[in-house]
Design a protein around this nucleic acid. Structure first.
Lengths: 164, 164
DNA sequence: AGCGGTTAGTTCAAATTTGAACAAGCAGTA
DNA sequence: TACTGCTTGTTCAAATTTGAACTAACCGCT
């Protein structure tokens, strides 16, 4: 029971580098978006995710799930974006309770204007630091991890359940 | 000037998976630490980083830099940990202005008690999802990215400066 | 010793994020 | 139809995080 499977040297180094890199990158991304468009990364991700829908619209809960953010957090940020005219709320036709977050024309323009600088940061500090093989490897790695976490139920780990 | 180098399919997939995975993992880690030890990830990282020092002590600014957190953020969290007896503040002998954050015995015990569950989460959702080669690849990738960001000065990107 | 420019750490206000509680609406079933 | 349980989105209080402003102390020079 109490025998822990620690991380070996390679695993520990990978984890430590991961933690450092994610914090550093998040900081760089936040800075760029703040300076260039007065947006937080969370706000940018909302605009970007909405733009993936043909109609630029998405249900609140659906959007929250895709962004991996709490419902209340999304409510708050949609309020901020609405205040700035980048997003509107519409009633959902099929569900009286539902709310659709809709990308406005201005929101679309804002995104198009901001995306290049954002991509430049992602490129400069991450993508362009890697070989194409490494990019492909990262895709594989992150996809696997994300899939595992999406599949696993919330709550404490059940020994031997997830890795299988 | 305005010709943007967008992300190709592989790059975009890698970036999207990265964003999703980091959010999902952060959430899992936070949940485990909250449940098992009533600690935030930020607090755990402070304890862990302090424990890396032989004397379990570190200057505030040094610690903030290693954790990639603002000085004020660290001040706040050290206050929280001090309130719980996991860390103490000591005067720095060599610099009158300096403050040393010191891991207490109880802090050490808390870390030792909490680490196994934390490692288990990191393992279950990240490390054990990967082949040893992929772990090694992730180490390489994240190390490269972190190095690039640590090396680059703050502020806007100077075209052609970082990638070289 | 005294000056001027940095650095260390804290305080403060503002923004963000989360979970719990809540009101309203849905859907299946007796 | 009425009931039961679940889902949707918001509100709310509490915790966290950041940058700016500030005080105190350091350091190199004169």
């Amino acid at each position: 029971m109490s025998d822990v499977k620690w991380l070996n040297e390679s695993e520990m180094a990978a984890w430590m580098a991961y933690v450092a890199a994610t914090h550093l990158l998040e900081r760089r991304v936040e800075d760029q978006l703040k300076v260039d468009a007065d947006l937080t990364h969370a706000q940018y991700e909302i605009l970007a995710k909405l733009s993936q829908d043909p109609g630029g619209r998405m249900r609140m809960t659906e959007l929250a799930n895709r962004l991996i953010v709490s419902k209340s957090g999304l409510t708050y940020q949609i309020g901020q974006l609405e205040r700035r005219g980048l997003v509107t709320r519409e009633a959902c036709p099929s569900d009286e309770r539902g709310v659709l977050a809709v990308l406005t024309e201005e929101g679309k323009r804002c995104l198009e204007r901001t995306a290049p600088g954002h991509v430049a940061v992602v490129r400069a500090f991450l993508i362009d630091q890697l070989t194409p093989e490494e990019v492909e490897s990262m895709r594989q790695i992150m996809t696997k991890a994300a899939a595992a976490m999406r599949a696993a139920p919330a709550g404490p780990l059940r020994p031997g359940k997830i890795p299988g």
